[in-house]
């Protein structure tokens, strides 16, 4: 079977959806964060696919920036999770509910 642009786009849309659903239903902060990373990587796949089929380099350039940003985000995010865990001994977001209106 010949693989076309649409196949990549559907795969990336599927991965993105899995990530979104994961963020909405999972309760562990680390797992939610992993789902966010899955969303970003799904987008990366679509960037590379577009870049290849448009014969344009900008999409692949963008992917490098996204990976860098994701790394920076991971550093800050995990630091926040660690400081939370030190104080509360939990990373379950259902148990983190001091702020309620």
């Amino acid at each position: 079977m010949h693989i076309e642009l649409n196949h990549y786009l559907w795969l990336s849309a599927f991965m993105f959806t899995v990530g979104v659903i994961g963020v909405l239903v999972r309760r562990n902060a680390i797992v939610i964060f992993m789902c966010v990373e899955l969303m970003l990587n799904a987008v990366n796949l679509s960037f590379v696919a577009f870049s290849h089929f448009l014969s344009d380099i900008q999409g692949q350039m963008m992917v490098f920036f996204v990976m860098t940003v994701a790394a920076a985000e991971a550093a800050v995010g995990l630091a926040i999770v660690i400081s939370l865990f030190r104080n509360r001994q939990t990373v379950n977001i259902d148990e983190i509910n001091l702020l309620k209106g």
Partner: peptide, 13 residues
């Protein structure tokens, strides 16, 4: 901590 956590997760989302 809680505010940072919520802000981070929703911001990244």
């Amino acid at each position: 901590n809680e505010a940072a956590m919520k802000y981070f997760l929703l911001g990244a989302f």
